[in-house]
């Protein structure tokens, strides 16, 4: 069953229409990928799901519950975690505080401490930097913190917006490894990624976006073998 079901969504920024009648599904335990050129509306889909850029029409169902009328914080509390573009950490707060904020809506001490232990085990570097201000971390560390923060809420689904953006190649592969591991934990992932090849290779199902509309969809590997896709996105 689909965890997230988006049906005919159109989103506007003022007069500008960013999404045209977009439909997509996110299956449980799967990695769903969204690829496309810059400005195709990839991030807008994630922002629309979160309620940061509310849809003007269409429906978004999370486990059968409509999200369109909910505020961002209510959507977040339902277990939909976004690792936003640019990471959006709280720079003047410590790494620990950032992680604890990830568990804001599930503050019961016992389970929170347990998850904190898990996340710190998952990201040993964060354990080392626990008392440091988030703003002083390196880009890769910040990205790990952003992911760790999202995991703290024990999310139903994690949405990542270009997690490899602006990182060194070494760090990019490190982040990819982490995504693999998260996926192995059975966490549902919705991924927006600029690295089309990697994304399609990993995605159970992928959507290709052009000018705010879905132009192609299917299992990642199938899309990867399509001539048109290879030409347009991989320059082959």
């Amino acid at each position: 069953m689909a965890v997230l079901e988006i049906e005919g969504v159109s989103t506007f920024y003022g007069e500008f229409q960013a999404l045209y009648d977009v439909s997509l599904k996110v299956e449980e335990h799967a990695l769903t990928g969204i690829v496309g050129a810059n400005g195709a509306g990839k991030s807008t889909i994630l922002r629309t799901i979160c309620g940061l850029a509310p849809a003007r029409s269409g429906s978004i169902l999370h486990n059968g519950v409509p999200l369109e009328r909910l505020s961002t914080f209510e959507i977040a509390r339902r277990g939909i975690a976004l690792v936003p573009e640019g990471r959006r950490l709280f720079p003047a707060m410590t790494v620990l505080d950032n992680l604890l904020l990830g568990a804001f809506s599930k503050p019961e001490r016992e389970s929170r401490e347990k998850r904190l232990g898990e996340v710190l085990k998952f990201f040993p570097i964060l354990k080392k930097r626990k008392a440091q201000l988030a703003g002083t971390l390196s880009g890769g560390e910040q990205q790990m913190l952003a992911i760790g923060r999202a995991l703290m809420g024990k999310p139903d689904i994690v949405m990542l917006d270009e997690p490899s953006l602006g990182l060194s190649p070494k760090m990019v592969s490190h982040i990819y490894r982490i995504l693999d591991e998260i996926r192995e934990l059975g966490i549902t992932i919705l991924l927006v990624e600029q690295n089309v090849e990697w994304c399609l290779k990993k995605a159970d199902r992928a959507y290709i976006l052009e000018n705010g509309s879905v132009v192609l969809e299917g299992p990642g590997k199938e899309l990867l073998s399509e001539e048109g896709v290879r030409k347009a996105y991989l320059g082959l």
């Binding site: 914080f73 209510e74 977040a76 709280f90 904020l101």
Partner: peptide
């Protein structure tokens, strides 16, 4: 913490489930 988070980045705070 939620108050401090909101003061630093309101949108990110919302994403944490903070009203």
């Amino acid at each position: 913490r939620a108050i401090r988070a909101t003061s630093q980045d309101r949108e990110a705070a919302r994403l944490m489930g903070i009203d």
